[in-house]
């Protein structure tokens, strides 16, 4: 059969916060072998399972919406794939959904994050923050660069429980690292936890669901 694309949505929490993207990638590959998902292998001298993540999650962040695409070479009901995946990890990696992808990872334009922690920010601070350029020093290959991240912030909202919800640019060209955003808003030494909560595509100058 033609390899079939399967999208896996999972939560990454707890002790997995300290596990880098590369380590997660290896962990998932080993698990896929263990639970015998018929993953499509690349041809060639050193064949490896073709698996693609939507985007790396920064170290120390959690997520409720991580996405991973695999291709399978034999028919297997999604329910069965889900059941096997559920037993393949600890609770820190919790499988939420297994489905046929509708959009390509290339179409991801924005990501939504919830910021919680030991800080206090009020409406005034938010309004002030959003009202002007937000210049930060960014380390690049050719040294430090001063950039304005304001255009990459799509929305920013204070929740009644003291947490913050923000939608930031997550497109290939102008992705904004939520860590940088938090430091700009809360200060370098603030104690915060970032949780990625959703993905969006662009549509008619607005944003819409990504699936």
């Amino acid at each position: 059969m033609v390899p079939e694309s399967v999208r896996i949505k999972f939560r990454k929490t707890g002790r997995l916060r300290y596990i880098s993207h590369l380590d997660l990638d290896r962990t998932v590959r080993t698990a896929l072998v263990r639970i015998k998902i018929p993953v499509w292998y690349t041809e060639g001298f050193n064949p490896h399972a073709k698996i693609v993540f939507a985007q790396p999650l920064p170290l120390f962040a959690e997520s409720e919406c991580e996405l991973l695409d695999i291709k399978i070479t034999e028919k297997m009901p999604f329910e069965e794939i889900k059941r096997r995946l559920e037993n393949a990890f600890t609770d820190d990696l919790h499988i939420l959904d297994v489905y046929t992808p509708e959009n390509s990872f290339r179409d991801i334009a924005f990501a939504e994050y919830r910021i919680s922690g030991n800080f206090s920010v009020n409406e005034n601070r938010v309004n002030d923050f959003l009202s002007k350029d937000i210049n930060i020093n960014k380390k690049t290959k050719s040294g430090e660069k001063n950039v304005n991240i304001r255009p990459q912030i799509y929305s920013l909202k204070l929740n009644s429980d003291g947490t913050i919800t923000t939608v930031l640019d997550a497109s290939g060209n102008s992705y904004l690292n939520p860590d940088i955003f938090c430091r700009a808003l809360l200060g370098d030494n603030a104690d915060f936890l970032i949780t990625r909560t959703n993905w969006f595509r662009s549509e008619n100058h607005g944003i819409t669901e990504f699936r």
């Binding site: 002790r15 300290y18 380590d23 120390f60 600890t90 104690d191």
Partner: peptide, 21 residues
């Protein structure tokens, strides 16, 4: 949690691996 942000390879110190008892 706070100190794990300040060290190299924090994954050395968190446990929680698949297969632990």
């Amino acid at each position: 949690d706070a100190i794990l942000k300040n060290v190299l390879k924090p994954g050395r110190y968190t446990g929680g691996e698949y297969g632990q008892v």
